[in-house]
Write a protein that binds this DNA or RNA. Structure first.
Lengths: 221, 221
DNA sequence: TCGATAAGAAACGCAACGTATCTATGAGAG
DNA sequence: CTCTCATAGATACGTTGCGTTTCTTATCGA
């Protein structure tokens, strides 16, 4: 009587559908954490997920899309836009939560992945939209509009460029620096650039906030 | 076993040193122009330069460094910092010349190249310094300091972040958009963001700015 | 029970990198 | 004028990793 060669070896029942898919995406996440993005290989993922490459390619057309799926699945969604009644705090909290989304992955992994996203025009859009359902620009816009309603800022200043400015600057800082911008960098961007542009009093252009960094009131979630 | 190659097969005299190096870098440039950066291969360069891969690797350790060398050689240096007596004009001229440095290459080639630069920390520095001797940030700084001397702007506003802001924003626009920012984009960045931050009157957000600029005697451009 | 569907295994072809090995050449030392 | 030596040039190699192909076999569901 012939031994069932392959199946007997692993002893694992054959997975299908969602269960298999979850296993694969978990494997991607683990490979990202262990090797970073540059050294994440399809073979590696397949091996770790105890499946085979064709199974991957039946679901995702290539490596980048596979990783997008994994990040979209495993990354915590940033919360509802904060509404503390103070523009600066709202911005700091929101930007902070954005920057911390992938904190349980090594920086290099995230950085390398994002760099790779830049190559394809379609994937750049994914990046711009923050890998999530709701675009972070929309959230920023909502936060700023609420500040308008409170009378904190003048609506005339809310041009699209200014609204997306904090994201643009932090993205650039991450891409160029290779490091997730610190709270301090976030504070500088807000206090030296964004808030002054929005005409919020207390910025370095008017009173004495110029010297050091402002008291870091960025909460730690 | 390897057969001895018939001598004089190519008929071309053997090049050396600088001559050979120039031929190689020209070949890189041509390959960039023809195939873009992503599809530029070492074999392709070697073939076009009528030499062989070892010759390339004896000079440059890898593809990116080779392309850096080619761009550094062939790209026109941006001119001396403009000094028109008007800050906005100076900035527009300088930024425009920066953006036009690689205009005789297809956009994809430059974009793909820059994206690849982002992978390596050391190469990011190369990028930041503008692939040239003098860092563009230094030039920006000089331009702005002259504006200070003319009394156009308040020196207190010249924080490092603000000085490099135009570069950061245009770089981000290029990387994210895949297109060299148009003059219109440059104008928006200047008029909506940089100049208002510097407290230059005339910008859309400048009227009634907090802590406004020193009463300006600068005639409107 | 049986057939359709998809998992799993193994190998392939391909492209490109970077290296190794060898021969041929030509510039310069003497 | 000749010899030497660095190096150009040719070719092939090993490697990695992608994405594909082929085929067998397990599992689901009708």
């Amino acid at each position: 009587m012939r031994e069932p060669v392959a199946s007997g070896r692993t002893g694992a029942p054959r997975r299908r559908g969602d269960e298999l898919e979850r296993a694969i995406l978990d494997a991607v996440w683990a490979e990202l954490a262990e090797h970073g993005y540059d050294r994440l290989t399809m073979d590696g993922v397949a091996a770790r997920a105890r499946t085979s490459k064709p199974v991957l390619y039946r679901r995702w057309p290539n490596r980048v899309e596979l990783v997008i799926a994994a990040l979209g699945r495993n990354a915590p969604d940033y919360r509802e836009p904060p509404d503390t009644g103070d523009l600066r705090t709202d911005l700091a909290v929101f930007l902070g939560s954005l920057l911390r989304r992938f904190d349980d992955l090594p920086v290099d992994a995230v950085h390398g992945f994002l760099v790779d996203l830049m190559r394809d025009p379609q994937l750049r859009a994914v990046f711009r939209n923050g890998l999530a359902a709701e675009g972070p620009v929309d959230t920023l816009s909502a936060i700023m509009r609420r500040a308008v309603e409170r009378g904190e800022i003048d609506p005339a200043r809310l041009t699209p460029r200014v609204v997306s400015l904090p994201l643009d600057l932090l993205r650039d800082a991450f891409l160029m620096g290779g490091v997730v911008p610190s709270d301090r960098v976030v504070a500088e961007v807000l206090d030296e650039i964004v808030l002054p542009l929005l005409g919020v009093p207390g910025g370095p252009a008017s009173s004495g906030r110029t010297g050091g960094p402002p008291p870091s009131d960025t909460p730690t979630p």
